[in-house]
Design a protein around this nucleic acid. Structure first.
Lengths: 112, 112
DNA sequence: TTTGAATACCTTGCAATACAAGGTACTGAA
DNA sequence: TTCAGTACCTTGTATTGCAAGGTATTCAAA
């Protein structure tokens, strides 16, 4: 096993990536590498092999759409943006996240 | 697919159960059904088939220990409590959780 | 012109998690 | 002795995230 702290963090991040991605795309459209950079900057570390299938999944669910755009250097980029459905789901996720934070606060600090 | 909100919540809860269980046992020892009830009360809904393997896993990692105790009615109960190692890990999880909440807050509200 | 570096896309196979749906076993009362 | 209630546990499956690959485009340097 690698670093135990890393394990703990990565385990806790599970299930939150979809929320992160919709949040990032709610601000502005972006292509995969840019999303990756934002996640890394926020310490929600991810690798390509995680991100690509996730984006494809969200696109297939109708939460995202994309368009191709030429890059100043290298191959064209796939710019993703939120659909109406994606925005609706992001709203639900906001509520769910708020509840979870409250639940954990309750469980952790109850009776102190 | 069942209720979409339920799906979202259950997805987000992933990876947080271990933290919840250590938190509950940090207050007082408890047996499985009591833990289950606390999790349900906190809206961190879980079923037996999830909880038992998790407890066994944490026990095997040395985070928990248990003792048998006679029940006023029915079969004996397995009372779990935190070990020293479990307490240490709970401390690390507190830090990890705090960071994750901050990260998500950053991602969600950046630039508002 | 062709080779390489940088960028960007994507897939496959694996390990771990949580769940659904079962099963076993002890106790006391009907 | 049978049944309801309580408590334990297992097996099989879907999903997630990761590691480790692969393909394709562009441009610059050899």
């Amino acid at each position: 096993m690698e670093n135990s702290s890393d394990n703990i963090r990565s385990q806790m991040r599970k299930g939150l990536l979809e929320y992160c991605i919709l949040s990032i795309l709610a601000r502005k459209e972006a292509y995969s590498s840019a999303i990756l950079d934002e996640l890394k900057a926020a310490n929600m570390l991810v690798v390509e092999g995680t991100l690509y299938p996730l984006l494809i999944r969200e696109k297939n669910q109708g939460l995202l759409s994309y368009r191709w755009e030429e890059s100043p250097q290298g191959p064209p980029r796939k710019y993703y943006c939120l659909t109406e459905k994606g925005r609706a789901q992001l709203g639900e996720m906001d509520a769910a996240w708020k509840e979870i934070v409250e639940s954990l606060d309750n469980i952790r600090n109850k009776g102190i």
